[in-house]
Amino acid sequence: MSSLSKVVASLKERFSEVAESEFRGLTRVVVPQSQCFEALTCLKGEFGFDMLVDLTCVDYLNFRDATDRFGLVYLLASMEDNLRLTVRVMLNEPDLTVPSVVPLWEGANWMEREVWDMFGILFEGHPDLRRILLPEEFEAHPLRKDYPLQGRGERHNFPVLTRGEA
């Protein structure tokens, strides 16, 4: 873990507002929204985090003591040194926009589309930001906490076929 702490230390040096925490052996850094692309570029280019394992989001609407609405999660891994690092970016309601990381990792393409589909977070500069899992005409972002589990009746809005007209 020594080299990972080195990475985090130099990241803190370069970007002033980076906060670090650790839980069960996983190191996390929280990067401010304005600097997230630079920080990720730096992590990929200089520290060799060449794989974006996953990109997801958490909606903290009902979370106890939460101050921010959304938290993006970038799970990074480096093949060379066998390290893993979690990068968090916190977002709040009016400005749900972050730069897309598709230029850095090609694999982010569909993951960002999924986060847009499920949470409604806009990725600036994404080549093809459309809904991916839900139909185009769907209006809500279902993984937000204010969307009910059973939906708002979208699943019932279809014509009924009977024996006679089939």
Binding site: D54, T56, V58, V73
Partner: peptide
């Protein structure tokens, strides 16, 4: 295949994200 779980003190996960290999490979 990984799971990203957020716990909020209750016995239900606050967020249960699955990292699906098929999704990433199909991309």
């Amino acid at each position: 295949l990984g799971f990203y779980i957020a716990g909020d003190g209750s016995d239900v996960a606050y967020r249960a994200r699955c990292r699906p290999p098929s999704f990433i490979h199909f991309a």
